[in-house]
Amino acid sequence: MGRLRLFLPLCGFLLLVVMLWLGFSLNDPHILPSALLQKPFPGFELPSLQDAEKTLTQEDLKGKILLVNVWATWCPTCKAEHAELMRLKEQFGLEIAGVVYKDEPDNARRWLAAYGDPYIYNIIDRDGRLGIDLGVYGAPESFLLNAEGKILYKRVGEVNARIWRDEIRPRLEQLEYFDLDQQR
């Protein structure tokens, strides 16, 4: 007993830490739910922003490495992210498909005209149904797809220089994306 008793506060503290750790890993929305990882992008049939007549499906996402970016004009962080997406397009030729999430197509068109368009095309997800299938809980979110249309990586929140450097770029390097790029 004696001195051992003095370790009681430490034991209580360690218990708390275990709980925080568990709660923390349970609550982490940035970690992709394992259900979606390495799975094909969910099916959809939605209009294109650029060409109202055209309907886009999951098949359109196949054939090349692609970053799918869920965004909206009502989302302030998207504005901050937009500049980074422009940079990725200009500097690395990254192909980005947009999902206009719960937004008016007219707003989206105006936004792209005003700030520049980093997307190869945009999918209009007006009622957020595709968002639900993707497990989107807010904009912006981004998904990295391989040429088969499988989801390799998901980012909840903005893609910034750090995320590009630490998360996306290494994955692209693994896919030898940049080697191909140089040959082009």
């Binding site: 504005k79 937009h82 500049a83 980074e84 940079r87 220089a161």
Partner: peptide
């Protein structure tokens, strides 16, 4: 941390 080279013309 900077947003370069395309800084937004207004903040959120």
């Amino acid at each position: 941390e900077r947003i370069v080279p395309f800084a937004p013309d207004n903040g959120a």
